[in-house]
C-alpha cells in the first residue's frame, strides 16, 4: 500500500494569499459598518456645529449656535433634568418590580423555570408598539383600570396616560425583561449554600436576605440599572404614544426636531447630549462596580 497512486489525484487548490483572503472576507461587513455607522455618526457630530438659516437650510458654515442655545436656554436644561429624573424613577421602579421575579426565577428549577424564562424573554420579541398599545388598553379613560374603578362607583376617569405617569408605567414594564436578565446573571454567583449557612447560624429570613442575598446581587443590580437607565433615556416610542405629545423628554425632542421641525443641527446636538448622558451613566456604573470589588 504505497502512496504514489493517490498523490496525483489530490486536487490543486487555487492559491490565495492569507492576508488578501482576510481582507476579502471582511470587506462587505466593513463597508456596511463604514457607510451605515461610522460615516453617519461622524457626520452627525459635525452637523451639530453647522449654521442654519431660518428656513432650516444649512449654510455650510461652522457655528456654535446650537450648542450655545442648548446651554443657555433653560428649556433644554429642564428637558435634560426631566429625562434623567424620569429615567431614574423608571430604573428604580423596574428594579423593585423585577427583583422578586428574578429571585423567584433563580430559585425555581426544571420545566417550571423554563416556562417562566420564556415568559420573561418573549416580550422582547414583541414590538414596543404592541406592548405600548396594551398599556393604552389598560390605562386609557375607557381602559381596564378606569372602567373597573367606575364599575366600583368612582366618579370620572383617573388620568393615567397622556402624562408622565403613563410613560413611567409603560417604560417600567417594557424594560423589565432587561433588568430581570441582568439580575439573573448577577444571581449566578449566589450559592444557596451560603444562604443556608447564614440560616444555620441563626439569621432570620429577612436578615439572610438583607445581609447575604442583597449584597451578593449588587453587581447584577448595577448592570440591570445601567441597562434600564440607558434604554429609558433613549426610548421614545412609548413616551410618544403614552405621553400623547404632552411629555417632553430628550429622545422625543430629538425625534420632533428631526422629523417635525427639521432642525437637524439641533437634533444632532440633542442626540449628542443623549450620548453624553450615556457616558456619564457608564462612568458611574464602572465606579460602582469597582467599589463593589
Amino acid at each position: 500500500m504505497t502512496a504514489s497512486a493517490t498523490h496525483a489525484a489530490l486536487p490543486e487548490a487555487p492559491k490565495l494569499d492569507g492576508r488578501a483572503l482576510i481582507v476579502m472576507l471582511l470587506l462587505p461587513i466593513t463597508a456596511v459598518n463604514l457607510i451605515g455607522f461610522i460615516l453617519p455618526v461622524v457626520n452627525l457630530a459635525m452637523i451639530s456645529f453647522m449654521e442654519v438659516r431660518s428656513t432650516g437650510a444649512m449654510t455650510g458654515n461652522w457655528s456654535f449656535a446650537k450648542w450655545q442655545l442648548v446651554v443657555t436656554d433653560p428649556f433644554y436644561w429642564e428637558l435634560l433634568w426631566n429625562s434623567v429624573r424620569t429615567s431614574l424613577t423608571i430604573t428604580l421602579l423596574t428594579l423593585l418590580v423585577s427583583y422578586p421575579v428574578a429571585l423567584y426565577l433563580h430559585r425555581s428549577s426544571g420545566m417550571w423555570r423554563s416556562i417562566l424564562l420564556v415568559m420573561v424573554i418573549s416580550p422582547l420579541l414583541l414590538s414596543a408598539v404592541v406592548r405600548t398599545y396594551g398599556w393604552i388598553a389598560i390605562l386609557s379613560d375607557r381602559g381596564l383600570i378606569n372602567n373597573g374603578l367606575m364599575a366600583l362607583g368612582f366618579d370620572g376617569p383617573l388620568r393615567l396616560m397622556f402624562n408622565l405617569t403613563g410613560v413611567v408605567i409603560g417604560l417600567t414594564e417594557i424594560l423589565m425583561p432587561y433588568m430581570i436578565l441582568a439580575l439573573l446573571a448577577g444571581f449566578g454567583k449566589l450559592d444557596s449554600r451560603v444562604e443556608e449557612a447564614a440560616a444555620t447560624l441563626g439569621a432570620s429570613p429577612f436578615r439572610v436576605f438583607w445581609r447575604v442575598v442583597l449584597p451578593l446581587s449588587l453587581p447584577g443590580i448595577a448592570l440591570g440599572s445601567l441597562l434600564t437607565f440607558v434604554l429609558a433615556v433613549s426610548s421614545f416610542i412609548t413616551p410618544k404614544l403614552l405621553g400623547g405629545g404632552r411629555v417632553f423628554l430628550l429622545a422625543t425632542e430629538v425625534y420632533d426636531q428631526a422629523i417635525v421641525t427639521l432642525d437637524w443641527p439641533l437634533a444632532a446636538t440633542l442626540s449628542i447630549i443623549v450620548l453624553v448622558v450615556f457616558g456619564v451613566a457608564l462612568t458611574i456604573y464602572s465606579r460602582v462596580l469597582k467599589s463593589l470589588g
Binding site: 502512496a3 493517490t6 489530490l10 487548490a13
Partner: peptide
C-alpha cells in the same frame, strides 16, 4: 514536503 499544505501531504 516541508512547504506542502496538509491536504496534499497524503
Amino acid at each position: 514536503l516541508t512547504a506542502i499544505p496538509p491536504f496534499r501531504r497524503d
